[in-house]
Design a protein around this nucleic acid. Structure first.
Lengths: 253, 253
DNA sequence: CCCACTTGTATAGTGATATAGACAACTATA
DNA sequence: TATAGTTGTCTATATCACTATACAAGTGGG
């Protein structure tokens, strides 16, 4: 018999036929174990049969929950040894006057890569026009890129470049895989970041797909303008980082 | 192509194979319509076929979501007319010096009822001992009751009575269906509420079952002590109200 | 090497979830 | 009294979610 009072938010039990599948409920509970710190120092999960009896379900149901978390990159299994949390220390992405993807993350991952997913020539909406200091509806080149560290997506960005000044930016990027190199090809050897605004939000469906995130994940959104040495805007961009994998560091120099 | 910026928290689309069944996602969305105020003044839902195409699912799936909400008492369907939100104005439960279930709700529901679910003779823990001003581990009589208005559960309470003074309280309650009447049987013709503390919390699993609530519902928790005319505590109680169905009014007289 | 412990795979059965189409039953209104 | 618009019921099919049982395969330690 329970005679407890206003009890502390006790973990709700697994609920059957609630419209939420058991594997999903268990998966959510396991994911929370990591942050709750009720874990061995080696990040090892209890064996499947034990989790199964703990949650009162079949071992296969636990396996289903685990395999989804493996898919998401939260867990890693080793046959014969156990299941472990992937300890993925966040990459530190410096934001400052010289914000560059590869240079910023250098040394923190063995391979860094920027891929162009999509590009188009479009007309500037007001936001972009203000950022680039051009007329609304002026022609701009739009790129969508994804940044990969060790082959895993960590950021996705949209960039807008003034078309009159940098008509070949998409091709140059495609050839070089880098904004810095592409701009260099087009005669701009240096550029600096003028302003950056940071926000955080829940991942959109697009984010989930592009960054391979789990529903409910958080993304950091950095909106900024790069300018050439003369101070003329050459790139307006919105970059969305997986908050699980990246932390932003502000260089206040 | 989307060129929108940091978009306002857009309603996530219905997600398939997410571990959350479609009917559950739709059911949650419909439930939110009421509070979001995007509803006809008559509280009528769009027809099923329209909801189905809106959510991109089969009509039967919408029907499943709706039937769950009907089960919960959120919706009401009328064949040939439509589906409507049940407007259930909250009952006003007065809390003050003379807090009594039936008298307090009189006139707000056609039938009022208090049923004893469970009782036991146990030892007072510290909380109860302090409330009743007795020794820790002294014998007390514990009752769990449920309050029904129009046959629907609106509150569930645990009460503790000092066993030495009121040994027959459980039987008396069982016979009369009222604390007031039970106490009267045992020679206590009047009592008053000395103190009440109010909190709110998410419904526990017990609450969900006993009050027939939907997961995530809120309960109001009132903890109080009743004393006899001489000021001696005779009842310590914790009452949990469904916040959907009850509002508490404080009499400050 | 053997043994205990772990994850991985296979097979089979049951109930919940979702789709599809057709038609019945009821309501309001022209 | 038709008719359009609505909810209710029925049948059929497919897939997902969960259980049950058994055994294979890898790991680590006595």
């Amino acid at each position: 018999m329970t005679v407890a009072g206003a009890e502390p938010t006790q973990d709700a039990a697994i609920r059957r036929n609630s419209g939420v599948s058991l594997w999903r409920q268990i998966s959510d509970r396991i994911r929370r174990l990591e942050t709750d710190g009720q874990l061995d120092p080696d990040g090892r999960l209890p064996p499947e049969f034990r989790l199964a009896e703990q949650f009162g379900v079949n071992r296969h149901t636990v396996r289903s929950a685990i395999s989804h978390l493996v898919q998401e990159g939260v867990l890693r299994t080793e046959q014969g040894r156990g299941t472990f949390f992937r300890s993925r220390p966040r990459l530190a992405y410096p934001i400052g006057r010289r914000t560059r993807f590869s240079a910023g993350l250098e040394g923190q991952a063995s391979t860094l890569q920027m891929v162009l997913v999509e590009s188009a020539t479009i007309r500037a909406d007001e936001r972009v026009a203000v950022g680039l200091n051009i007329e609304v509806a002026a022609t701009v080149i739009w790129l969508r890129t994804i940044g990969l560290a060790d082959g895993e997506p960590v950021s996705t960005a949209e960039s807008w470049f003034p078309a009159d000044r940098l008509p070949g930016i998409a091709d140059a990027f495609r050839r070089t895989g880098s904004v810095t190199a592409a701009l260099s090809l087009l005669g701009i050897d240096d550029y600096t970041r003028r302003a950056t605004t940071l926000t955080a939000t829940h991942a959109s469906d697009d984010d989930l797909a592009r960054l391979k995130l789990a529903p409910g994940a958080i993304v950091l959104v950095a909106v900024g303008v790069n300018v050439d040495p003369d101070g003329r805007p050459i790139q307006y961009s919105e970059t969305r980082f997986s908050a699980d994998r990246i932390e932003l560091t502000i260089e206040s120099a």
